[in-house]
């Protein structure tokens, strides 16, 4: 009974976080800030929904498959985000910034120039 309650709570949290990440992807101003919103959907929304479903399924093969999905997404989602951020910088998208703390900007500008040349 307690496990049932806990799993429903986790599923509700997961559904709510899915909507929040989708709202964030609409509200935030540019690609880089939107990636943070997408990060919510890829980590905790997926994680808590899968955890809730695991608790519903109990010790069966379903739980193992959900755990495998979770494990794979924990490796794949940062890779995708990083590749997208690097491609966006190289493609010449200027991030909206309050502060740019990189005093020596050569490295980033190098990447941008290379993007323009090729």
């Amino acid at each position: 009974m307690a496990i049932d309650m806990l799993s429903w709570i986790l599923i509700v949290i997961g559904g709510g976080l899915s909507i929040i990440s989708a709202v964030g992807i609409l509200r935030l101003p540019d690609v880089f800030t939107r990636m943070h919103a997408a990060g919510i959907g890829d980590t905790l929304a997926l994680g808590s929904l899968c955890a809730g479903m695991m608790l519903q399924a109990g010790w069966t093969i379903v739980t193992i498959k959900l755990a495998l999905i979770l494990l794979f997404m924990f490796f794949a989602s940062p890779t995708t985000t990083h590749a997208l951020a690097k491609a966006a910088i190289a493609g010449g998208v200027k991030p909206i910034l309050d502060e740019d703390r990189i005093a020596n900007k050569n490295a980033l500008e190098d990447t941008e120039n290379k993007g323009k040349n090729s």
């Binding site: 990440s21 992807i25 929904l49 493609g91």
Partner: peptide, 22 residues
């Protein structure tokens, strides 16, 4: 930009995966 669209499609894929599981 194209990157916004790729990001959105990637997130859409994650949601579709969750929908299939549910």
């Amino acid at each position: 930009t194209i990157y916004d669209r790729i990001l959105a499609v990637n997130l859409f894929g994650t949601k579709a995966l969750l929908l299939i599981a549910v």
